[in-house]
Computed example of a mutant assay.
Amino acid sequence: MVKEAFKYSNGKTKRELVERALQKFVANRKRKDVRDLIGTVEIDPNYDYKKLRTEQN
């Protein structure tokens, strides 16, 4: 698995590879789960996401 990880990384050492993997792991764990936000955000009933998509070029 380490050889495969080196294919997708520009890391030079195993230590570098492990540090980057741990940084990604911690960042992913810190990220809030969108399901935890249910009921905490009020959505504007007039919000039209489809219109916004067509306005962007």
Results as ranks from 00 to 15, higher is better:
residue 25 F to P: 00
residue 1 M to Q: 11
residue 44 D to T: 02
residue 43 I to S: 07
residue 42 E to F: 03
residue 26 V to Q: 11
residue 34 V to G: 05
residue 27 A to S: 13
residue 54 T to L: 05
residue 36 D to H: 09
residue 25 F to A: 15
residue 40 T to A: 09
residue 28 N to R: 12
residue 22 L to M: 15
residue 16 E to D: 15
residue 45 P to M: 06
residue 35 R to E: 06
residue 3 K to Y: 08
residue 5 A to E: 09
residue 46 N to A: 13
residue 47 Y to W: 10
residue 56 Q to L: 11
residue 51 K to R: 14
residue 49 Y to K: 07
residue 7 K to S: 14
residue 43 I to M: 11
residue 32 K to V: 08
residue 34 V to D: 07
residue 45 P to W: 01
residue 46 N to W: 01
residue 10 N to C: 10
residue 5 A to M: 14
residue 14 K to P: 01
residue 2 V to E: 12
residue 40 T to F: 06
residue 35 R to P: 01
residue 55 E to S: 04
residue 11 G to W: 00
residue 15 R to S: 09
residue 1 M to D: 12
residue 31 R to G: 04
residue 41 V to L: 14
residue 20 R to T: 02
residue 32 K to D: 04
residue 38 I to H: 06
residue 48 D to T: 00
residue 7 K to Y: 13
residue 32 K to W: 01
residue 24 K to M: 11
residue 6 F to N: 04
residue 55 E to R: 02
residue 54 T to P: 00
residue 44 D to E: 10
residue 5 A to S: 13
residue 32 K to N: 06
residue 12 K to Q: 11
residue 50 K to W: 03
residue 2 V to S: 10
residue 37 L to D: 09
residue 30 K to D: 07
residue 1 M to E: 12
residue 35 R to C: 01
residue 35 R to N: 09
residue 8 Y to R: 12
residue 12 K to D: 06
residue 3 K to N: 14
residue 18 V to Q: 07
residue 47 Y to M: 08
residue 28 N to M: 11
residue 1 M to V: 12
residue 29 R to G: 04
residue 18 V to I: 15
residue 2 V to Q: 13
residue 4 E to F: 14
residue 26 V to N: 10
residue 36 D to W: 07
residue 9 S to E: 07
residue 1 M to S: 14
residue 49 Y to E: 08
residue 46 N to S: 12
residue 13 T to M: 05
residue 36 D to L: 10
residue 30 K to S: 10
residue 14 K to D: 02
residue 47 Y to R: 07
residue 45 P to V: 05
residue 37 L to Q: 06
residue 3 K to A: 15
residue 51 K to T: 03
residue 5 A to L: 15
residue 31 R to T: 08
residue 19 E to S: 09
residue 34 V to P: 04
residue 46 N to M: 09
residue 38 I to N: 06
residue 24 K to A: 14
residue 10 N to T: 13
residue 47 Y to T: 00
residue 3 K to G: 12
residue 2 V to H: 04
residue 11 G to P: 00
residue 37 L to G: 02
residue 7 K to F: 13
residue 13 T to K: 06
residue 27 A to K: 13
residue 42 E to C: 04
residue 30 K to L: 15
residue 17 L to I: 02
residue 56 Q to H: 06
residue 11 G to Y: 01
residue 25 F to E: 11
residue 19 E to C: 05
residue 32 K to S: 08
residue 30 K to M: 14
residue 15 R to Q: 10
residue 30 K to Y: 03
residue 56 Q to T: 02
residue 23 Q to L: 11
residue 51 K to W: 01
residue 52 L to H: 06
residue 39 G to L: 08
residue 40 T to W: 01
residue 24 K to R: 12
residue 16 E to W: 02
residue 12 K to G: 00
residue 22 L to G: 02
residue 49 Y to G: 09
residue 38 I to P: 00
residue 21 A to T: 07
residue 47 Y to L: 11
residue 42 E to T: 12
residue 12 K to I: 05
